[in-house]
Amino acid sequence: MAPSAATHRAEETPQTADPLVSIEGLSVDFDTPRGTIHALRDISLEVPKGKVLGLVGESGCGKSTLAYSMIGLLAENAKVAGGAIRMSGQDLAHLGPKAWRDLRGRRISMIFQDPMTSLNPVTTIGKQMIDIQYREPGSRAEKRARAIEFLEQVQLPDAAAKLDVYPHQLSGGMRQRVCIAMALLTRPDLLIADEPTTALDATLEMQIVTLLRELQEKFGCSVLFVSHHLGTVAELCDEVAVMYAGEVVERGAVREVFHTPRHPYTQALFDCDPARFRQATRQLPTIPGTLPDLRQPPAGCAFRARCTKAFARCAAEHPPLYTAGPGQVARCHLNDPAEDAA
């Protein structure tokens, strides 16, 4: 499963297929009273058409920032410091407010982390689902029928009756199904799901993930799935990008990355995943250390301070994304063919 990397790159790497969105060298800064935080640094990533791209990493690694920058909902103190997000000839990183409004809820839609607070508490589900169709022609009755149709798609029981209900009358799992129905109702090309199962309990989590998978296959949209739960990523995603400290450290097909992780951080993440333990343990393993200060990102490898395999070169030279396997790249000097030779 580890042939010489370079030979496979040309035909199997996901970058070659015509992607829906391609992020080119995106950097995002946050202005805070304590200094500028370089939250995303030189991100290059592609969301393939009709596939699911997973984005994993620990809290604070920038995965949500990346998701929000792709729908233009970054916080007010955030600014794009460089790079581009290309989608059908448009650069999303530099769109004005009006152009963004045209795109949101039409070509791009989003499912948020907390279904308990994501729906308008003072409006019925039905009105919210009709409101988001405001651009569509057609009567209120037609829009209502469409809302029912999509509530049935997400397997909400007694869908028609749910239209007259307020969000607080539904459980968390039902509300997240409503959010998914709303996101799909607009028939987006790109669906961004920002940790959609984090706020739900474990039994619901798998139901929602399975539902997302089914609906993604049915509607054929691209999905950017942000999660810190490796199990759901394995279940749902075709490709995965691992982020650390505002950078993509590893990227590739889920099968490859999960089978043979090429970056020490990815390996450490897997070592910490309770689902992968074969033996009972009293103490859950963690990755020692904390994220580097993103006001002054370290000069060499960002993971160096926590890496068990760090060597001299890691401090001196910032690693590029090396080709590490078929369609798999990793930001670690250990993948440099020159290191093998040495």
């Binding site: 729908i71 909902l73 963004w100 409004r101 045209d102 795109l103 949101r104 809820g105 039409r106 839609s109 989003m110 948020f112 982390q113 907390d114 607070t117 994501s118 729906l119 308008n120 508490p121 409101d131 988001i132 405001y134 651009r135 959010c179 709303m182 607009t186």
Partner: peptide, 14 residues
């Protein structure tokens, strides 16, 4: 600052 307002913006409502 509540999430449902952000969600409304995510659907491009005026």
């Amino acid at each position: 600052g509540q999430p449902h307002v952000r969600m409304a913006r995510a659907y491009g409502l005026p």
